[in-house]
């Protein structure tokens, strides 16, 4: 596969350099919402949507910023766009499913401070991806986040029944699981050559 092709970029963000397990982006929601599969799915979908919107807007904004030579405002503009996209998702979910809204709780507005999204927007700018590449990259990043979240939720549901030594409960054992998952994902390195 050609390293600049959209399909490769999707695979790159989805598996090879998974945003959560290889780049350590978006760890707070990853540990916070992965306790149950029922909340992991919708959270993943919400992140994919915000990723797509943020990627499109970041692409447009970057063209404007470069045009007027005000690149130092990039960070502030990106954050403002992401915050508005999250607000939109929040209002939609609140309208469509109040139960889900309550289950996701504080983690829904916190998507704004999810470093995976800002990270994706920054990486796409640094690497100067074109429109189609940016879209594929953001889709891969979002799908990768969801994959990691769902895998983790499945493992943690099993963990509820396991007998864990006392000092290792909750966060410590979850991080160890994440480490093992990340070890497994290292096997994807070199995929698609």
């Amino acid at each position: 596969m050609h390293p600049d092709s959209a399909a490769f970029l999707f695979l790159h963000a989805f598996l090879i350099n998974n945003f959560v397990l290889a780049l350590f982006l978006g760890l707070c929601p990853f540990l916070g919402v992965s306790a149950k599969l029922k909340t992991a799915w919708p959270m993943g979908l919400a992140v994919i949507f915000v990723m797509l919107v943020a990627s499109l807007c970041a692409y447009g904004i970057n063209i404007l910023l470069v045009r007027f030579e005000i690149e130092y405002l990039r960070l502030i503009c990106y954050i403002a766009v992401i915050a508005s996209a999250v607000q939109l998702v929040e209002m939609t979910i609140k309208k469509l499913s109040p139960t889900l809204f309550r289950m996701l709780g504080i983690f829904l507005p916190l998507i704004t401070t999810n470093c995976a999204i800002l990270g994706m927007a920054l990486f796409q700018t640094f690497n100067e991806y074109n429109f189609v590449q940016s879209l594929a990259y953001s889709l891969g990043a979002g799908a990768g986040f969801m994959l990691a979240l769902v895998l983790m939720a499945g493992l943690r549901e099993k963990l509820e029944l396991a007998d864990v030594p006392d000092p290792c409960t909750s966060a410590a054992i979850s991080l160890m699981l994440a480490g093992l998952l990340s070890l497994a994902f290292m096997g994807f390195a070199g995929l698609g050559g």
């Binding site: 780049l23 350590f24 000092p167 966060a171 410590a172 991080l175 160890m176 480490g179 990340s182």
Partner: peptide
């Protein structure tokens, strides 16, 4: 990357 997770979890323990 996996090492980061392991070291942090060991500190937490």
């Amino acid at each position: 990357p996996p090492g980061g997770f392991f070291v942090l979890s060991l500190w937490l323990v």
